[in-house]
Structures are given as C-alpha cells and as structure tokens.
Design a protein around this nucleic acid. Structure first.
Lengths: 214, 214
DNA sequence: CATGGATTGGGTCGAACGGTCCATATAGCG
DNA sequence: CGCTATATGGACCGTTCGACCCAATCCATG
C-alpha cells in the first residue's frame, strides 16, 4: 500500500521538486499546502499518512501547524523540515508531536526513508540534528564535572539533609552534632553560595549539582 | 586519503564480516581487537582514525575502553556498536567521548557513513537511537505538559518568586498583595505539595517542573 | 441559586530561623 | 611556630515562619 504524502512549504520550487522526487520514490503526493493554516485545513480533509512540513511558513509556523494537525488528525505523522539544525526548534517540534526532523540539505533518499519510518511510527533525525542533540547532552554533563569544591564535605552533608526535607534539629540529630553547629555550617554556606536563607542555598546547590533532588 | 579503521568486537564472525565490508567501502582496516583491554593498547600503537567498538566485550567494556582511548589517543574517533538501543548506555557512551552510536542491525552503508562522519568530527546516530533519545525528550516533556494543575496560577507565581530569591515581603510587593496573602498561598501550597516549609515546597515544585531554576 | 474553589485579607502565637558576639580544637601549610 | 580553614559549640536577640482561627469577594459549575 502506497503512503499518502502531503507537503507544506511556502516555496513553490521546493514543493515541486519534493513532489516529483517523492513520487519517484513511490509515494502518493495527495496535496501541497503553501502555509501553516492551509496545511491544517488540508490535512483535515485529506487525512494523509505523512506530512512533510517546513518549519518556517507564513500565516502559521510549522511547529504550531504540527500541533494543530496532531490534535485534529491524530493518525497523521509529521516530518519537519528546516534550514538549520536548531536544537531549540527541534525540541519544540518534538513537543508539538513531530515524528521526524530533517534539515533541507539532506538527500531525497533520506527524506524518503524518514517518511517511511514516520508512517511506521518510527522517528528519524538528520545527522546534523542528532549531533546537535548530543552536544546538548554533553553540555549538560560538563557542568557537574567540575571538582571545584566550593562547600566543604560537612557543609555539603548539611545541604543534602535539608534538601532531603530535614529541619535544623533533624539535621543535627542525623549528623550527631548540635543545632548550633548546623546553623554555623549554614551561615558559612550562605556566604559561599551568595544565599540569604536555606531555600536559596539549597536551590543554588541544586543548580551547581552539589546536592541531588532525590 | 583513506581512513584508517580499527575494529573491536569479541565476535570473530562480526569482526571478519565488518572487516570485509568496510574494506569494500574503501576503508583501511588496520587492526582488530577481541576485547576492551586489547582495544586500548592496540589503539595506542596503531593510532587509527576511527574505531568501531562493540559496547559489550570481555576484560573491559566498550564504554570504558572508549574513555581510555580518548585519554591516550585524543585524535582517534570512536563509533560505538550495540545490540540494543539503550538510552542509558548511549548517555554513558557520549560521556565517554564516543562520536557515534549504531545498533548492529543497521546496514553496512550506514556504518560506512557513520565512520566517515566520525572522521570528519561529526556525530552519527542510529535511527533507533535517535528515536530513543526523542522518547526521552518527550518523556521529560510529558510531565510538565499535563494540565493537571496541582497548584493554582497564583500559587505558582508565589513559588516562582520564592525560587527566584524573594522573601515573603518581596513576593507581596512584587505581586501587589499583602504578606498575609502570600502566606496563605504558601500554606495552601504546603498541603498540596506535601511540604512543611518553603524550602521543601520549592524543591518539590522544581522536581515537578512547576517552577524553573532561572 | 447554591456550592465550592480561588483570591484576598486579618489576628494570634509558638517555633524556627538568621545574625552577632564568642570559644575551642584539630588539622595543614609555609 | 604562627596562620588559616574546618569543625565544633555556646548565648542572645530580633525577625521570620508556619499553624490555626477567621471572613469577604469573585467566578464557574452544577
């Protein structure tokens, strides 16, 4: 059974080129939309299997159009097309329910593969975007790697206990020290983390990866 | 210039099959290691451009071997091979410095492409793993996506203000309400979030994605 | 129209918090 | 041998916090 494909892009040349090459790849191109709003209404009446949707379009951008189509025609899978490998846009497209994300300079074979995968419920990503996502993962990992111990071991224990829900007296009991010592540690922490109360101190500690959120 | 490729896998059949098909794709297969430890020492002496490394190997697993090779031979790029699309292993491989991650049932063309990309410093991901990563993104997004508003809009504002470092009176000034109302909102929040003070409430709110950490 | 939630506000009171003084002891470092 | 950081503790005090009462308004839902 041939896959019923719909295109949504504001560039006529790109639409025609895509239409031709996708037809050659065995897809049934059932419709072409010129902007996001048209894409949504056309998707409702045509109920294609897959839509190839440009991110940037007049009237309504591709991400919002994707969201609306997903609500109106849940069975239709959407593969987003974009000019640049933008991590932020990618994340938004995923939130909007996109089943694939390709940069426009990829080959027609890649596009065809992504459409087939989308129709199977799988997800396809351009290598450029995969790399972009990996960079994000790496960045997120870099931060907590630093061994610059800003707070002492004992202060860290106090912070973690408070983050775990202990009051001053409970921290004291748990660490076998007096409440005063806990307060002293806290006062030291406030200076070091530029916090004025335990709430800010714990939040800052979480941001810095000093304590964990359970 | 041909790319000098090294293989590391504990299955002879897979090594020989890979070696043959990679040679046919124009790579120069300079070495084959049977376990992680051998891979590290062999990488040091051969300094290949790219290593195709299995994740699961005796002596030393591929992720650890990857880490060590990256330390000893920084110029060598590593593409990981795995049987299953495991998000956790993927994350560890990225941390270890892998430049690609493929599941073993992908085509030799894909492997060849990944090796070429790795040698260029790019990153390649199996579609299955891209999908796995996207699932993670979606999962992370799902939580805050729910419209089960546990705290009211106003309560959320109070929480965010406190997370931003405001005291009760500052929140009151900022929201143009009395301190008492702020306290009332907080009391309501404590019940809903099962917290006994603002520290716990804000932490819980962060966990639930209700407030952001700046 | 009644019910209930959301938002606003008040008062009281004991407990907790944060800051300021202070002291002691034990390391580690030049 | 001092100097500094860390860890421990005490006393005091003003501020803040959270719990427990209360009530008025608005608004949506039934």
């Amino acid at each position: 059974m041939t896959i019923r494909l719909m295109l949504a892009d504001d560039h006529r040349m790109l639409r025609e080129g895509l239409s031709r090459s996708m037809s050659e790849h065995g897809f049934d191109v059932v419709g072409e939309a010129r902007d996001g709003a048209e894409a949504v209404s056309m998707a409702c009446s045509l109920t294609p299997d897959v839509i190839l949707m440009d991110v940037s379009m007049p009237e309504m951008d591709g991400v919002e159009a994707c969201r609306q189509v997903r609500l109106s025609v849940p069975g239709t899978k959407i593969v987003m097309l974009t000019m640049h490998a933008d991590q932020e846009v990618l994340a938004n497209a995923i939130r909007a329910g996109a089943c694939g994300y390709l940069v426009k300079d990829c080959s027609t074979e890649e596009i065809a593969g992504a459409v087939r995968m989308a129709s199977n419920g799988d997800t396809a990503l351009s290598p450029q975007l995969a790399a972009s996502m990996l960079d994000e993962v790496r960045k997120l990992d870099r931060a907590p790697t630093r061994e610059e111990r800003v707070v002492t071991k004992r202060e860290e224990e106090v912070l973690q206990s408070i983050a775990d829900g202990c009051s001053t007296s409970e921290v004291a009991d748990q660490m076998y020290i007096s409440q005063k010592t806990v307060k002293n540690h806290l006062a030291s922490i406030y200076q070091k983390l530029d916090a004025r109360d335990r709430t800010q101190a714990v939040l800052q500690a979480v941001r810095m990866g000093i304590v964990s959120l359970e």
